[in-house]
Amino acid sequence: MAGLMRIVAIVARRLAAAVPALFGVLVVTFVLMRILPGDPASLMASSPSAGPEEIAEIRARLGLDGPIPEQFLVYLGDLAQGDLGQSFVTGQPVATDLMERLPASLELILVALIAAVAVALPLGVAAALRPATLLDHGVRVVGTLGVAIPTFVTGLLLIYVFYYRLGWAPDPTGRLDVFLDPPPRITGFLLVDSLLAADPAAFRAAAAQLVLPAATLALFVMAPLVRITRAAMLEAMASEHVRAARALGIGRRRVVLVYGLRTALVPVLTVAGTVISTLLGASVLVEKVFAWPGIASYSLDALAAGDFAPVQGFVLLMALIYVVLNLVIDLAYRLADPRVTLA
C-alpha cells in the first residue's frame, strides 16, 4: 500500500513538473507558426475571383487579424475549455480530428514496436551469445540496411513487391478494406474493436492492412534495438552475478533469460523509449505512403497549408505523449531492476 502511494506521489510530482515544459512548448509553437513566412488566408482564398475582402474575411475567421499576444490569450482561453481550435484543412475541430486519428497512429506504432522488439530481442541475444560469428555479422548487416533505407522507399518497395507484383497484400490504403464496414468504434483500435464486436472479417482485414506499414516501420527501428540488446547482453553475460549463477550450476536457459536478459533489459527499455519517438517521426512518411489516417500525416498536411491550429494541437499532444512515455519507462525500470529508485 505504501509502495503504491509512493508511486502515485511520484507520478503526480512528475506530471506537475511537466506543466512548465508543456507551456514552453505551447508558446514556442504558437510564436513559431506565426513568425514563419506565409499567409494561410491567401492560400485558402482559392476561388478565381477571390479579392482582398475575401482574404480579410478568411483571416478574421481564422482569428488571425489581431496582434499575436492577443491571439495567444484567446488561444489559452479556448485551451482552458478544452478547445484546440478549428482545422481549415478538414473543417473539423482539432480535438475531434486528433482523437479520431490518434488510435490509428498508436495502433500502427505499437504493432511496429512489438514486431521490432519481438524480432530484435532474440536476434540481439543470439548475436551476443555467439559474438563475431557469421550470425553476429549477418544480424548487423540486416539491421543496418533497415535503418539505411528511408522509410518511404522501404514502404514503396514493399507495396511494389507484395501488393503490385505478388498480390498477397490488400490494397495499401488506410486501415480497413474500403468495401468493409468498420466495427463500432469503442477504443478506436481496429484490432481491439473488431474482436469486441466479434467481427472476424474486420479483424482479418485490419490485421492485413497493418502488415506492410508496420513492417516498414519495424525494419527502420530494428537496428538500434538489436545493437543495444547485443551490447547489454554481452555486458550482462560477463558480469559477476552471471558468473556466480553459472558457478552454482544453474541451467543455461535460466542463466541467459533470468540473470542475463533481465539485467540487460534496462538499457533496452531506454532505447525502446527513444525508438518510440523515432517511430512517431518516421510514421509521417509511412502514413503518407499507405494513406494511413493517423495524426502524423494530418499535422504534415496542416503544416503545408499553414493551418495553425492542428499543428499546435499536434505538438501539444506529442509533448504530452512524451511526458507520459518517459514516466512509463521510468516506472518500467523499477520492474526490470528493483535497485532503480525514482526521485
Binding site: 514503396l156 511494389y160 501488393y163 503490385y164 498480390g167 495499401p172 503518407k288 494513406a291
Partner: peptide, 21 residues
C-alpha cells in the same frame, strides 16, 4: 461511389492498375 484520399501518387496508380480503384 467511394472517393478516397490516397496521398501517394504511385500508390494511386498501382490501385487502378490492379483493378482495386
Amino acid at each position: 461511389v467511394i472517393v478516397q484520399t490516397v496521398p501517394d501518387a504511385s500508390t494511386r496508380a498501382a490501385l487502378v492498375e490492379r483493378g482495386d480503384a
